[in-house]
Design a protein around this nucleic acid. Sequence first.
DNA 1: CGTGGGGGAGAACGCACGTTCTCCCGCTCG
DNA 2: CGAGCGGGAGAACGTGCGTTCTCCCCCACG
Lengths: 190, 190
Amino acid sequence: MDSAIARDQALDAAETLFYGRGIQAVGMDDIRGASGVSLKRLYQLFPAKEQLVVAYLERRDIRWRQRLADHVAGHEDPGRRVLAVFDWLGEWFREPDFRGCAWINSYGELGATSERVTAQVRTHKQAFKDYLAGLVRDAGLPSDLAEQVYLLAEGAMVTAGIEQSGPKPAEQAGRAARMLVEGHGGTVGH
Amino acid sequence: MDSAIARDQALDAAETLFYGRGIQAVGMDDIRGASGVSLKRLYQLFPAKEQLVVAYLERRDIRWRQRLADHVAGHEDPGRRVLAVFDWLGEWFREPDFRGCAWINSYGELGATSERVTAQVRTHKQAFKDYLAGLVRDAGLPSDLAEQVYLLAEGAMVTAGIEQSGPKPAEQAGRAARMLVEGHGGTVGH
DNA sequence: CGTGGGGGAGAACGCACGTTCTCCCGCTCG
DNA sequence: CGAGCGGGAGAACGTGCGTTCTCCCCCACG
């Protein structure tokens, strides 16, 4: 059954196009052209565009958090791990096709229109916040800090998207996070 | 010349509808219906929808920064002024029709499509950042802090929009900002 | 070899919407 | 009073796009 392959190709095209040009600016026909998957098959796999959008966000969510977790796992010191998040954000921002946070952008585009998209955005952000909360807890830091680190990360993502200024927002957010961690008695191996 | 009045009415309708439902979800006909300004007149005042969008963002920018500045001006202590920004954000988030930051949402919707909208979003965010930089400088704090406070504010705005959780993100961001200010030797009258 | 069903290509359909055009009213100025 | 024009209501036009339909090919099975 190569419908699994077709599904992957469709999602690959969706990810490139939706992320790069915005969701409403991309038609189902563009997805077909970029993926080589016929319209008929596309509509078998995803009965409506909205479901393709949600599937795109879901798959990207999995991959995004995995990449982050992989990077963070490269550090041993629990205090350092919290800050490693910002290193990774900087790497992400540096990528040439970086255009901001896919979920924030999608929310801006469809948050008022599509409940399913909104739900997916909230799910993703909650998962990210929970992940940070785990890192903060493991470092023996107070739980309030998790939310504060989260806000810094979100601010860095929005700003990096709008300014297209590369990793700078992540570095600045990382310095702020370091101050907050040390202010709470945290220690940070270099 | 009541074309000034028609312009205001058009912009009032545009602000309510674009902000509340998203820009692409609102047609020029909806603007006409909500404003009472005929299509003919609308197109005299704004030769294309994009220009109405930009005008909406510009007018909102002026008003938004004025409201913020008015609130902050109610505090005497320069250190306290920096934190007053977050008090005001909390008040804003509490408003019943709050749906996130209009510029962040517009960027998500049209950033990939419309250069003019992107330019307006960057202008607004730069003005906000400059304003914060002034507050930080007046408080005798290092200029790096301005960017950090800015990132916290952006993070709070995005999060408040997505979560619809009221003033909490602003309060948490305010606590973080307070720690950063105090960590830099700033003093904060209560 | 015949047949039937799954799939591809792309036309067709319906609708939404940005923009323009038509028609007509009412006011203003001579 | 009469001519002309600015403006309102809304139809019309063109296009884009989500979704479905038509037609045809190809291959598995009797």
